[in-house]
């Protein structure tokens, strides 16, 4: 199979949004809002930042990427298929009987390191991987992408405490800060602010970017670790439902799947305003 070695991140982002919308609509599945908020981050990661080997998903030198907000796996499956880890046509089986594409991320899918679905598991696991690389003297890095609501989980803060103790500067925490969780705005449920100051107080090196600006994402993710000897945290400020006007900042699209009409409308908008 001939595959493009690299896809421009803007094309990858558009592809992720396009396929994820189709998949979620066909499967009548939830969580499209949180897929769209992290789509640009995923696109930048999978278009040159992460060292990956689509023909050899378990290549020992790969960077490890863990999606902790596992309910948003449609975006990762789309990114992996677009990068050639498995055929694009398989995306049509998302959530269908007998498929391996379950609607919380599954390690049975090529390119996926770890199954999640219960929030608060990804960062401790990624920390274990970073520690393994450190103890074995290996150069690859360990990334965990978390949601903002997920930071309510104490397990994350256990890991956030431990990582700097061992100077794990090969560990990267990315927060998809779309400011909305299941039942309301993050600020109304459990305010995370001052988030950057919290993480810095926990001895992480922190940067903040507009999570829909590819140049900013690329610049930040190209300069890892942010500080030698410290774990890195990238706070990406995002919009839940980004790219589809009727979904943006609407809690309902944490749950709803677009019907055929709404899907057509969403895809048309993507055509008009590619990121």
């Amino acid at each position: 199979m001939v595959r493009p070695l690299m896809i421009p991140s803007t094309d990858l982002a558009a592809g992720i949004r396009h396929h994820a919308l189709r998949m979620v609509s066909a499967a009548n599945a939830s969580h499209i809002g949180g897929v769209l908020s992290m789509a640009d981050t995923l696109a930048v990661l999978y278009s040159g930042i992460l060292k990956v080997f689509p023909d050899q998903p378990d290549h020992p030198d790969r960077d490890r990427f863990i999606l902790s907000k596992g309910h948003c796996c449609a975006g990762v499956y789309a990114a992996l298929a677009l990068r050639g880890f498995f055929p694009l046509s398989e995306l049509d089986s998302y959530g269908m009987d007998g498929s391996r594409l379950m609607t919380h991320i599954s390690h049975k899918v090529p390119g996926v390191e770890f199954s999640t679905g219960s929030l608060g598991h990804g960062l401790p696991f990624a920390l274990g991987k970073a520690l393994a690389a450190r103890r074995k003297g290996l150069p690859w890095r360990s990334f965990a992408l978390l949601s903002d609501g997920e930071l309510d989980e104490g397990s994350n803060w256990e890991a956030i405490l431990l990582a700097p103790q061992h100077q794990l500067d090969n560990l990267v925490l990315i927060i998809d800060y779309n400011k909305i969780q299941s039942l309301g705005a993050v600020s109304e449920v459990i305010e995370l602010e001052p988030l950057r100051a919290k993480l810095e107080a926990f001895r992480w090196a922190v940067r903040e970017v507009d999570g829909h600006n590819h140049a900013e994402l690329h610049a930040a993710l190209s300069s890892l670790p942010f500080s030698k000897g410290q774990p890195s945290c990238l706070i990406t400020h995002t919009t839940k439902g980004k790219g589809v006007d009727y979904m943006e900042n609407q809690i309902a699209w944490h749950y709803r799947a677009p019907n055929a009409d709404l899907l057509a409308k969403a895809l048309a908008q993507l055509e008009q305003n590619p990121s």
């Binding site: 696991f125 920390l127 405490l161």
Partner: peptide
Amino acid sequence: LNAGVAEQNMAGLAAGLASE
């Protein structure tokens, strides 16, 4: 490793180590 008084993280990072 002493993971501290933090058993959820201890079990999770143990899985990460084991996966490597």
